[in-house]
């Protein structure tokens, strides 16, 4: 089998939510000498993009999207464990994510964590109801590439603005890219508050993160 054939088996296995098939196909591909980063980017991460499209077409539903995300997360962990010490596994970047202060909704945020992690990012989840000051402290401590802020109520959306202001006041705005999301959030709001990116849901969040990171 050539590389494309291995990759197609991986992609189909994810879409079919068959973890055994995916694990086996990945192992076969590794043994055949396919570059682990190609397996990850063009097999696993690519499969989630396709799953995201199927979700947008209402062919796959949320629990299935999550199931695919978990399969990819597990398989990626196995690859990393297998190749521990091998410097060829690189992450796209580090994302810090939180639901803003006053808001305890986190189902959507948790989906973003899952899909971002399964798409090649390291993710630190600060949880919900997170004050701006905590986020500023964590940026200084962990030096992330992207900050993602979630708000589900129009009354808590200002928390996204406050957080961006706090980051500016701390003098570290230029060190990070900031993206926002959540049901009442719009691209117009994102622009108004000076965010770099906006996404409507977890799948498009991955695309948007890639875009603002300059990853094609």
């Amino acid at each position: 089998m050539n590389t494309d054939e291995y990759l197609n088996k991986i992609i189909e296995g994810v879409i079919d939510q068959d973890e055994a098939v995916v694990a086996k196909s990945v192992e076969e591909a590794l043994n055949a000498g396919v570059d682990p980063m190609v397996i990850i980017n063009e097999g696993l991460t690519e499969s989630l993009k396709k799953v995201g499209d199927l979700f947008a077409e209402e062919i796959l539903f949320l629990p299935e999207l999550i199931g695919c995300g978990e399969i990819v997360t597990n398989v990626m962990k196995n690859i990393e464990a297998k190749l521990k010490g091998d410097a060829s596994i690189t992450k796209k970047g580090l994302m810090l994510i939180a639901t803003v202060k006053g808001d305890v909704h986190d189902i959507g945020k948790n989906l973003v964590v899952l899909l971002m992690g399964a798409s090649g990012y390291d993710v630190v989840d600060l949880g919900k109801d997170v004050p701006a000051s905590t986020i500023v402290d964590k940026i200084n401590e962990l030096k992330p590439d992207i900050i993602a802020l979630s708000a589900l109520l129009s009354t808590t959306m200002p928390g996204q603005k406050n957080t961006i202001q706090a980051i500016e006041e701390a003098g570290i705005r230029k060190k990070v890219k900031i993206m926002v999301g959540g049901a009442p959030v719009t691209r117009a709001w994102a622009e108004e508050i000076g965010a770099d990116g906006y996404a409507e849901d977890a799948s498009t969040a991955v695309k948007e993160a890639d875009r603002i990171m300059g990853i094609v």
Partner: peptide, 8 residues
């Protein structure tokens, strides 16, 4: 219910 397509 949580609608599993719209996530609302």
């Amino acid at each position: 219910i949580l609608d599993m397509r719209a996530a609302t």
